[in-house]
Computed example of a mutant assay.
Amino acid sequence: MSMTHQYDLTDTFPFLATLNEAAIAQFRQRIGVASIPAGQHVCREGDICPQLAVVLSGSVRVYKVGETGREITLYRIGQQDSCILTASCILSQTRFPALAVVEQDVQVALIPAANLREWVAQHEVWRTYVFNLLSRRLAEVITTLDEVAFRRVDVRLAECLLTLTQQQAQATITHQQLASELGSAREVVSRILKDFEREGLIALTRGIITVQDRAGLQKRARA
């Protein structure tokens, strides 16, 4: 992880423009920027959260692993966004309950935990920022849980494939990666993909899925 303090704070936190220069200068002193390569875990289950990271570029996947080894993606963190689990752990001084891994090289603004607690207590704009972050991400997690609990895997898989192939007909992804994305077992995903292939909706090659009948796949996604 490489670290620097050279960046424009108000680009990342535009609400700070409402504060005086002394407050902005204090924030600028305490917040740093780091670059983290793809594939690196930034948090593991049980970790203490020493800082809140706000993504400036790139992508981070936050996920949970069950006792059987099955994974489910809780949410992704993209540009100008942050992790509600980290924020919650910092404010409640508890440990991280999931895992977070860099999917695409990221640059992040890092706010030390002690400073975040202090600023949330002292400044309404920071309280509003954190509470908005919590409410937005909580809605996403509830949607994910609702889908896993109440929607069929084949419907969710069809939707996932449509999303992955919005720009081009092919998606480079393994059956295990799809299973982790959907919170299902690889065997279940493989079986459904074979069904899709028999129906002429997709073509399967090693590590690549090609959508051949997008309209048909859309029909499955609406089932």
Score class of each variant (00 low, 15 high):
216 G>K: 03
25 A>T: 07
56 L>V: 04
141 V>G: 11
106 V>E: 05
205 T>R: 15
131 F>Q: 03
89 C>M: 12
93 Q>H: 08
162 L>F: 03
144 T>K: 10
27 F>Y: 12
17 A>P: 00
16 L>K: 10
74 L>G: 10
183 G>V: 01
24 I>Q: 14
135 S>Y: 06
147 E>M: 05
34 A>C: 08
153 V>Y: 11
216 G>N: 10
91 L>M: 12
165 T>N: 05
99 L>D: 12
46 G>P: 04
200 G>W: 03
212 Q>Y: 08
140 E>A: 14
20 N>Y: 02
130 V>R: 01
157 L>P: 06
98 A>S: 14
185 A>Y: 07
61 R>A: 11
194 K>S: 13
84 I>V: 05
4 T>W: 11
152 R>V: 01
8 D>W: 00
54 V>G: 13
91 L>I: 09
70 R>E: 13
180 S>V: 03
68 T>K: 15
71 E>W: 05
129 Y>W: 14
195 D>V: 06
120 V>M: 07
50 P>I: 00
101 V>S: 05
149 A>Q: 11
81 D>C: 06
40 Q>D: 11
172 T>A: 15
22 A>I: 02
129 Y>K: 13
22 A>C: 02
190 S>H: 11
13 F>D: 04
7 Y>K: 03
189 V>P: 08
9 L>P: 00
93 Q>G: 01
111 I>L: 09
214 R>W: 00
199 E>D: 12
133 L>R: 06
107 Q>S: 10
49 C>R: 04
100 A>L: 07
87 A>C: 09
108 V>S: 09
7 Y>N: 05
86 T>L: 04
171 A>Y: 01
202 I>Y: 04
65 V>D: 07
78 G>Y: 10
60 V>N: 04
118 E>A: 11
102 V>A: 04
193 L>N: 00
107 Q>K: 14
101 V>R: 13
52 L>N: 02
173 I>M: 02
159 E>R: 14
196 F>M: 01
88 S>H: 01
68 T>A: 15
174 T>I: 02
77 I>S: 07
167 Q>T: 03
145 L>Y: 10
66 G>S: 15
